[in-house]
Design a protein around this nucleic acid. Structure first.
Lengths: 128, 128
DNA sequence: TTAATTTTACGAAAGTTTTCGTAAATAAAT
DNA sequence: ATTTATTTACGAAAACTTTCGTAAAATTAA
């Protein structure tokens, strides 16, 4: 397994989110999507994608004259890494504290709360 | 309520963690603590604390020739802000997904899992 | 083919963060 | 009092991130 170090910057993460959502995409598609949230120059997006390519955060293939960019790492792996960083960096490593804070201040539906409890039930069963 | 924007950098966050753990501290104390994890120059730590002071992340008082630095914002408020950022930046705003990932890959004890469930019970009661 | 359009490549400026060297101020030690 | 050690102040370099202008390459339209 490649123990690559995934550490996207904020801009890189915004791009990754688009790719996670839309699947492999061209610069144009990604940039259009980013512009729904915040004005971003086309070459700015392109440049960041080029940097991400050299960092190994994305891969690209040619489609005509376009480059199609795909995420190099699993979405989950990236989320996990960022979560770990926050966990260690701000919550002293306690997942419980993080979870309580996350649930405490964000509107989570009853259904979702139930799903979380179900999942914890599984964990409790497996862990014993 | 002060709607201040708290956005510590990684280095600043490392310092905040020391202060949260040890309480208000001198540069020497903070720097010694940081050096347990990673070599950090004394003036580097000092400089960052000075910047944090101008940003309003910490306050300082004099104690002899020393400055004693304290966190300006509640630990919880800072954690919350960082959590929000991660939630929106990498989890598409879904607290459930974040919580499931957090619990799934981090060793959380049965007691803690139970506490989380109890807390969710409270939330379910209050929310209905 | 020629012109217009779109895309990629790339350098560099602007902004931010991190690191460190040096000097001045303060206190302690001799 | 003089020296030594510690602390603060501050500027600037180094590293990293973000933005953008311009040119070259590739494709499409006329």
């Amino acid at each position: 397994m490649a123990k690559r170090n995934i550490k996207p910057t904020d801009s890189e993460l915004a791009i990754l989110q688009v790719i996670w959502e839309k699947g492999p995409s061209s610069v144009r598609e990604i940039n259009d999507e980013l512009n729904k949230l915040r004005e971003t120059g086309y070459t700015t997006t392109l440049k960041i994608l080029q940097i991400m390519t050299t960092k190994g955060l994305v891969t690209r293939t040619k489609d005509g004259r376009n480059h199609i960019y795909a995420a190099a790492a699993e979405k989950n792996a990236t989320q996990q890494q960022l979560l770990d960083k926050l966990l260690m960096g701000a919550f002293g490593g306690s997942a419980k504290k993080l979870v309580l804070e996350a649930l405490g201040s964000h509107k989570t539906t009853l259904e979702e709360l139930q799903e979380i409890q179900n999942y914890i039930d599984e964990l409790k069963g497996a862990g014993s």
